[in-house]
Amino acid sequence: SFNTVDEWLEAIKMGQYKESFANAGFTSFDVVSQMMMEDILRVGVTLAGHQKKILNSIQVMRAQMN
């Protein structure tokens, strides 16, 4: 498990989005775990492969939080 959203993004090789997530207010796992595709688009993730990777990881995160 990760301590910060930045660490999580690095771990899934999506570190290039750290600033975008932070600027959009997605700075805690409570918020990130609620993200939908529209949120991912809003933070500027436009590549389908990256969207899928982030969404898949969020689903895993949700499962671990319950």
Rank of each mutant, 00 (worst) to 15 (best):
S1F: 13
S1E: 12
S1D: 13
F2D: 05
F2M: 09
F2N: 06
F2C: 08
F2S: 06
F2E: 05
N3A: 15
N3W: 11
T4M: 05
T4W: 06
T4L: 05
T4E: 08
T4I: 04
V5N: 00
V5Q: 00
V5K: 01
D6P: 12
D6G: 11
D6Q: 07
E7G: 08
E7L: 06
E7P: 02
E7V: 05
E7N: 09
W8S: 00
W8K: 00
W8T: 00
L9M: 04
L9V: 02
L9T: 00
L9W: 03
L9K: 00
L9I: 03
L9R: 00
E10H: 06
E10D: 13
E10T: 09
E10M: 08
A11V: 11
A11Q: 11
I12F: 04
K13I: 05
G15S: 11
G15V: 05
G15M: 05
Q16T: 07
Q16V: 11
Y17M: 02
Y17T: 01
Y17V: 01
Y17I: 04
Y17D: 01
K18E: 03
K18R: 11
K18D: 02
K18S: 12
K18N: 05
K18P: 01
E19A: 14
E19S: 10
E19I: 09
E19V: 11
E19D: 12
E19T: 13
E19K: 10
S20V: 08
S20L: 12
F21D: 01
F21N: 00
F21S: 00
F21A: 00
A22G: 06
A22E: 09
A22Q: 15
A22M: 12
A22D: 05
N23C: 07
N23H: 12
N23M: 14
A24P: 02
A24I: 05
A24R: 06
A24K: 08
A24H: 14
A24V: 05
A24T: 06
A24F: 12
G25Y: 04
G25E: 04
G25D: 04
F26I: 13
F26P: 00
F26W: 08
F26M: 10
F26H: 04
T27W: 06
T27Q: 08
T27L: 08
T27V: 11
T27D: 09
T27N: 11
T27F: 06
S28C: 06
S28A: 08
S28H: 07
F29N: 02
F29C: 05
D30L: 11
D30G: 09
D30V: 09
D30A: 12
D30F: 09
D30Q: 12
V31E: 10
V31W: 06
V31H: 09
V31M: 11
V31Q: 10
V32C: 05
V32Q: 00
V32P: 00
V32K: 00
S33K: 09
S33D: 04
S33N: 08
S33P: 04
Q34V: 09
Q34D: 09
M35Q: 01
M35R: 00
M35N: 00
M35P: 00
M36E: 15
M36N: 15
M37V: 10
E38A: 12
E38W: 06
E38K: 11
E38T: 11
D39T: 03
D39R: 01
D39M: 02
D39N: 03
I40H: 00
I40C: 05
L41W: 08
L41V: 14
L41M: 13
L41E: 11
R42T: 11
R42A: 14
R42D: 07
R42S: 13
R42K: 08
V43M: 07
V43W: 01
G44W: 03
G44F: 02
G44E: 03
G44C: 03
G44R: 03
V45W: 02
V45S: 01
T46R: 10
T46N: 09
T46L: 12
T46V: 15
T46F: 10
T46Y: 10
T46G: 05
L47M: 12
L47F: 11
L47K: 14
A48D: 15
A48V: 13
A48N: 12
A48I: 13
G49P: 13
G49L: 13
G49K: 12
G49W: 15
H50G: 02
H50K: 02
H50M: 03
H50A: 05
H50C: 03
Q51E: 03
Q51C: 06
Q51L: 07
K52V: 12
K52S: 12
K52A: 14
K52I: 14
K52D: 12
K52N: 13
K52F: 10
K53A: 15
I54N: 00
I54H: 02
I54T: 00
L55H: 08
L55R: 04
L55P: 00
L55V: 05
L55N: 05
L55T: 03
N56W: 11
N56R: 13
N56P: 01
S57C: 09
S57T: 04
S57M: 11
S57K: 06
S57N: 06
S57R: 05
I58H: 00
I58P: 00
Q59F: 10
Q59D: 10
Q59H: 11
Q59K: 13
Q59C: 09
Q59A: 15
V60W: 11
V60A: 15
V60D: 15
V60T: 12
M61A: 03
M61V: 05
M61I: 10
M61R: 03
R62H: 09
R62S: 09
A63M: 09
A63S: 13
A63F: 07
A63Y: 07
Q64M: 11
Q64I: 09
Q64F: 08
Q64W: 09
M65L: 11
M65I: 12
N66S: 12
N66W: 03
N66Q: 14
N66G: 13
